[in-house]
Simulated assay, not measured.
Amino acid sequence: MTCQAPPYQPQQVRFVDQLSLVAAQSAVRTSRHFLRFALAKWQAALIEDDVLLVASELVTNAVTVTGVLPEPPAWGELERLGLVHVRLVGLPDSVVVEVWDESDEPPRLQRVGDDAEGGRGLLLVQELAERWGSYRTTGGKAVWAQVAVRPPLPRRPTGEGRGGRPATPPGPDPALLRRVRAGLDAAL
């Protein structure tokens, strides 16, 4: 993977949300909640699953290379507190997930065996993202992935459905409601 800047220009950016996290095991879960909220706010829930999976892999890698602190860290361990940063950038037809960490080692795709329990994160990112890359920053690197916003599935016509039946449920049947009322009145 060659180093490359993220695939957008400032004038293309429609929305940005960013969060800094302690490099702890909880960072992945917290980043998922943050991204779910941002995507809902942007009305981009159609790509939520792909974005959350991509971000989980990128944040997991960032936490691993930054150095995982135990939860909760001891007082003396707070001095070596490492941070990871997650940014979600909304573009007209995609979103970009950027994750910064404190390592300057570029990410590397790994070919792992079928029995391996890990090492497939960037392969998942490569499959789900339209494109991805990394670039060096002051004090580390950023890894980004661009996820395309797919158009929504076509809606079913509201007229005739299969077999000549309406696709939408029918409204109340006045004749049936009169019979039910008459039956209730008779029972009382």
Results as ranks from 00 to 15, higher is better:
Ser103Trp: 06
Val65Lys: 01
Glu79Lys: 10
Val54Glu: 06
Val63Thr: 02
Thr64Gly: 00
Ala74Asn: 07
Leu58Glu: 00
Pro106Glu: 14
Pro70His: 04
Arg87Cys: 10
Leu52Arg: 04
Leu39Glu: 05
Gln110Cys: 12
Glu48Phe: 06
Leu69Gly: 05
Pro107Asn: 12
Ala74Asp: 09
Asp104Trp: 08
Asp93Ser: 14
Gly76Thr: 04
Asp50Ile: 12
Glu98Gln: 10
Thr60Cys: 05
Val84Trp: 01
Asp49Thr: 10
Trp42Met: 11
Trp42Cys: 09
His85Trp: 13
Leu52Val: 04
Val86Gln: 00
Val68His: 02
Pro92Ile: 08
Thr66Gln: 04
Val65Ala: 00
Leu81Glu: 10
Gly90Thr: 09
Asp93Gly: 13
Lys41Glu: 15
Ala44Glu: 13
Glu79Phe: 08
Val63Met: 01
Pro72Ile: 03
Glu98Asn: 06
Leu58Pro: 02
Val112Tyr: 10
Lys41Cys: 13
Asp50Lys: 15
Leu83Ile: 06
Pro70Ser: 06
Val86Asp: 00
Val54Asp: 03
Leu52Met: 08
Thr60Arg: 06
Gly67Tyr: 02
Glu98Arg: 03
Gly90Lys: 11
Arg111Asn: 13
Asp50Ser: 15
Glu105Ser: 15
Ala62Arg: 02
Leu69Ser: 07
Ala74Tyr: 03
Trp75Ala: 13
Ala38Ser: 11
Glu77Asn: 07
Ser56Phe: 04
Asp104Val: 10
Ala55Lys: 04
Ser103Pro: 05
Asp101Val: 02
Glu105Gln: 15
Leu58Ala: 01
Trp42Leu: 09
Lys41Tyr: 12
Pro92Asn: 10
Asn61Ile: 02
Glu71Pro: 03
Ala38Leu: 04
Val59Leu: 00
Arg108Tyr: 10
Arg108Met: 12
Val86Trp: 00
Ser94Leu: 11
Val89Gly: 09
Lys41Asn: 15
Pro107Glu: 10
Leu83Gly: 04
Ala62Ile: 01
Phe37Lys: 10
Val51Met: 08
Leu52Trp: 07
Val84Leu: 02
Val89Ala: 09
Leu83Phe: 05
Arg108Asn: 11
Trp42Ser: 09
Thr60Lys: 06
Trp75Leu: 13
Leu109Ala: 12
Asp50Phe: 13
Glu71Gln: 06
Glu71Ser: 08
Trp100Asn: 04
Leu91Val: 04
Glu102Gln: 15
Phe37Trp: 12
Leu78Ala: 08
Pro72Gly: 07
Leu53Arg: 09
Leu58Asp: 00
Ala45Val: 14
Ala55Gln: 07
Val65Asn: 00
Gln110Trp: 12
Ser94Trp: 12
Val63His: 01
Val99Met: 09
Arg108Lys: 15
Val51Ser: 04
Val63Asp: 00
Pro73Leu: 06
Pro72Ala: 05
Pro70Leu: 03
Ala38Arg: 07
Glu48Lys: 08
Ala38Asn: 06
Leu78Asp: 07
Ile47Gly: 11
Glu48Arg: 08
Asp50Trp: 14
Ser103Lys: 04
Val112Trp: 09
Pro72Tyr: 02
Asp50Cys: 13
Leu58Asn: 00
Val68Asp: 01
Pro73Tyr: 04
Glu57Asn: 01
Asp93Asn: 15
Gly90Met: 12
Ala45Tyr: 07
Ala45Ser: 14
